[in-house]
Design a protein around this nucleic acid. Sequence first.
RNA 1: GCCGCGGUGGCGGAACUGGUUUACGCGUACGACUCAAAAUCGUAUAGGAGUAAUCCUGUGUGGGUUCGAGUCCCACCCGCGGCACCA
Length: 809
Amino acid sequence: MNMEYKPQEIEPKWQKYWQDHKLFKADDFSKKPKKYFMVEFPYPSGAGLHVGHARSYTALDASARKSRMEGNNVLFPMGWDAFGLPTENYAIKNGIHPAQATEKNIANFKRQMKSLGFSFDWSREINTTDPKYFKWTQWIFLKLFEKGLAYQAEIPVNWCPSCKIGLANEEAVGGKCERCGVQVEQKNLKQWMIKITEYADRLIDDLDKVDFLDKIKAQQINWIGRSSGTEVYFKVKDSPEVIKVFTTRADTLFGVTAVVLAPEHPLLASLVTKKQKDSVDQYIREAKKKNEFERENIEKEKTGVFTGSFCINPINGNLVPVWVGDYVVSSYGGGAVMMVPAHDYRDYDFAKKYELNIKEVVSGGDISKEAFVDYGKLVNSGDFTGLNSEEAIKGITAWLGKNKLGSEAIKYRLRDWVFSRQHYWGEPIPIVHCEKCGTVPVPEKELPIELPYIEKYQPTGTGESPLAAISDWVNIKCPKCGGPAKRETDTMPNWAGSNWYFMRYCDPENNKALADPKKLEYWLPVDWYNGGMEHTTLHLLYSRFIYKFLYDIGASPTSEPYQKRTSHGMVLAEDNRKMSKSFGNVINPDDIVRDYGADALRVYEMFIGPFDQAIAWSTNGLKGCYRFLEKVYARAKEGEESVPDAESDENKKKLNRLINKTIKRVSQDADNLKFNTAISALMIFMNESSGLHLQKSEEEKEIFSKFLVILSPFAPHLAEELWREIGHKDSIFEEKWPQYDPEMIKEERVKIMIQVNGRVRGEIEVEENIPKEKAEELAISDEKVKNWIVGKDIKKVIFIPNKLINIVI
RNA sequence: GCCGCGGUGGCGGAACUGGUUUACGCGUACGACUCAAAAUCGUAUAGGAGUAAUCCUGUGUGGGUUCGAGUCCCACCCGCGGCACCA
């Protein structure tokens, strides 16, 4: 055996062995209990694997390995989310086909993953850009279309002038393109939309069924933004029109002094009087110039113009003026609000500026100074005066309902999902536009609609995809009438392929269905899904939605796809910034594997901090973990040397207790995402067992073997190497996970601390479970303690068995 | 503003249902080995007082509950993440 720890020699050897012996192959329909572990599949970028990927993958790899040793049939798959803009941009720049760039990047990612020793079942590898795969992504779209959940609409789209592409709201956070950071503009385009809003309630309510981190649930609920309130109908004076406004504060209805419409409100044109037309038109023109993000900037002063019309407050018949103001969000709650300046900060600002009435209807504040927005007792509110706000909301809503002047209503922040992209490198939307028949779905048997091979991938910049220029691909016969027709040239967003990939892993080769229902039933739901926090409101919500839809049409076996969802913290650079090429602070896993080995990287990433917290990389910390592994390696060799006293009964007992404690700690911590303390327990084992002879007798060898087994999920290569070294024939990963013996953990003698008035004054070592009287006697006679209690009255003695005794004087 | 999380040594972080704060790792100092350095090993490492035994003060701040509070309660300060003119 080599005397020096050389991970570079050990690691490739065992990686090959595991692969050749198919040790990590998941077995459909095995009688063992199934466990499905999944990490988010990566986008294979040109930059290669990030040490942050390694953190997530190592955690679930360790858990998957442990789970197999516990006797489970584990599915732990990997694939590629390979459609996307960076690849397309790279292809444009370098004049190669995106498919080639993708292939190259995947090969690199795969090599890197293999070098880290992850136990993926590579026989189930999938790739979203493979026509055999996206055939089913397109099939899902056809089903959505068939059920009326996919529709086209002319909508203002967030338009990135640099990428020349429409973006979903989620991709244009803060008004900047998620990809390139350029300021987004508004542009009206006909887009495919998916009615995710139809599932809003279920997406919230079903969170009760699953075991997601609380912050993940909270973010999803927040994003969907369900709020219940009242819709109030304001009849327009001298007009048949009715303005519907949404409010959560029906109790303030008597305080309405205006109604304000968003500039996009459909009724606006018909309400503007001749006299006001010029100023309203000008206002709308100005408002449209600002994009949605500027308008949503709350620092801005609120502005508006009177339309000239009045409407009737249904609760008291008062006439109130109708205004237009761009602080009203057009896409929420109907794009109209009732203005109650006395009890809303925004309305208060608006009323002050334009000298509108401020009428107090809820007491408790001083409205001459600022709006009073809390609940309180109603005043100036007709029959409802004197009620508190909660009662009044119910009462007024009921009254409106009875008189058909309003109703209870629930509104959501969630908008329908913009599903069109004007790009080449995505799944073509399987739709044909026929002059006669209109929008016609491609027949299922014609799927997949593959991407044509083209020379230029540049976006046209006209709002059309580059596909529009390929006339022999675009111009086809209508599948319905045979007449001339054109293919849809928009492609799907990069979320489309990741919506359902966990289903495909269950049956990756199937050409008749997206997966065999029996296999889905066997494997789903995913037992544990880990990924980045940044996907909580995008990917996670979308895929839950699509999965629920598939459940509704009988294509998936359960109502939720993921039983448990966790998120790992980011790995930041040593300088606490994000790792980025431009900062020059990127850690490449290849370098770490070359210099320290995969096991050191794995152990380090688990050890450095709580799994769900962001952490800064530390190369010194990594070295500490490398030293630990070196020690383990050296210990395996010590076997032949003799250490005095190692075989004494006392030492054997100590060693036995130590390994049992360590097994308990590592098992429990690993199950609770506390990988950092699991590693620390392994380190403690090494520290405390130093000097104890570990391999001479069979008994000691057995203890060291157990240690290797509990080390193996984290440092699989080293554990396998040493496992064979000390004489085992089969792979360590075919071994059973050890159980600890609770009897062995018990200490025979325990330390009891002695407190006087709650302050520690001494300590006695006694047999376990001694009675209070005896402990008290020993405590009082303790030399140190005597000094504190001499001459004082003992008022009370508190005794916690095996822990402490507190003497109160 | 709303929602969620957090504040513990020089640093990353431990601390079970309230019971010896600072496990484990890093860093630092000193010592051993070496001609020397690196590596490795050993010892120390919250602050203060003291030759020492020992004592005092310490988990963001101020109160409270308790024999006893990092942990529970109240008020506040700061930081991070998400949402945000959503009525």
